[in-house]
């Protein structure tokens, strides 16, 4: 019911209608303004939330980028150990070279013994001028002299084999780690051996480091032999100064890491001379990320 007074005339009634219409419009406008204000407030909140989301997304991207340095830190740890082992190897290789030289000196001394020296002299005499002199002899004499020479040669060879003993170091056993990864058909091996063993081999003696590198290469190809990838060839190079090997194998070749592990262990165990140098070679599998260089450089051909 209306609280307004009953209009006395149509004119009053029209005025009253107009007043009510204006009042209704004002109420309507006030309600709209109230809703608009609420919408604006919510929009502001949304904008604030979007700004917060944006900030969080930026933080996330930054964290994502920071993931690599964490891995680089891991790689650095691995290489720190390998470098330390490389230093150990260099020291042990020097000791081993001395021991080998001592054996060689003993061998040379033994060659001058009354038992062997005459054989050496006879062998030398034949080698120095035997061919020319032999050519002038009748075939039957020549044959007889050659037989004598061959006998002397075989005796000398036997003596040399006998004298070729493996030295035994009286030193503390040192463990040396070799690491490998196998990921998406790429096998990477990093050794504690200097890359010079590969790249500068012609100018250096085949010492203990070469011998260890050779056993690692042997283990790698022993693992490959008899598989679908036996014709694959490793690429060798330097990785932070250390000898590195890379090998591509078929993606569907399963079980290769286990095969490599077994072959390496067997190869290492069979190296009597490396054991005599008091070196214990160990193979460890690591995630590929821990072997990748900091700046994603490839293994360089040394």
């Amino acid at each position: 019911m209306s609280t307004h007074e009953q209009p006395g005339s149509i004119a009053d009634a029209l005025r009253a209608v107009e007043e009510q219409r204006v009042a209704a419009q004002e109420r309507h406008s006030a309600r709209l303004a109230e809703v608009d204000e609420e919408i604006e407030r919510l929009q502001e909140s949304i904008q604030n939330l979007q700004a917060q989301i944006q900030t969080l997304q930026e933080s996330r991207a930054q964290i994502e980028q920071e993931q690599d340095p964490e891995f680089e830190g891991g790689a650095e740890l691995i290489f720190q150990v390998l470098r330390e082992h490389s230093g150990r190897l260099a020291e042990r290789a020097a000791m081993w070279a001395e021991a080998v030289a001592a054996v060689e000196a003993q061998k040379n001394k033994a060659l001058q013994s009354p038992e062997i020296a005459p054989l050496v002299a006879e062998y030398q005499q034949f080698r120095d001028g035997g061919d020319a002199a032999l050519a002038q002899l009748p075939p039957s004499y020549r044959k007889a002299i050659e037989e004598v020479h061959n006998k002397v040669r075989d005796q000398l060879r036997a003596h040399l084999e006998e004298l070729d003993v493996t030295p035994e170091l009286d030193a503390e056993s040192i463990p040396l780690d070799v690491v490998f990864s196998s990921d998406e058909g790429l096998v990477m091996i990093i050794t504690p051996v200097s890359a010079d063993v590969y790249s500068q081999w012609a100018g250096r003696p085949a010492g203990l480091d070469t011998r260890i590198a050779a056993k690692i290469v042997e283990g790698l190809y022993t693992a490959l032999r008899g598989t679908a990838a036996e014709a694959a060839e490793a690429v060798y190079g330097g990785h932070e100064g250390l000898l590195a090997m890379e090998l591509e194998i078929p993606l569907d070749m399963s079980g290769f890491p286990e095969r490599l592990q077994a072959a390496m262990e067997q190869t290492f165990e069979s190296a009597v001379d490396i054991a005599a140098a008091r070196v214990e070679l160990r193979l460890a599998k690591v995630p590929v990320d821990l072997l990748l260089p900091a700046d994603d450089e490839e293994v360089d051909d040394a």
């Binding site: 062998y123 040669r153 081999w201 012609a202 085949a206 070469t210």
Partner: peptide
């Protein structure tokens, strides 16, 4: 008469 090392 001697065997060769790897480099040899």
């Amino acid at each position: 008469l001697k065997p060769l090392d790897l480099h040899g």
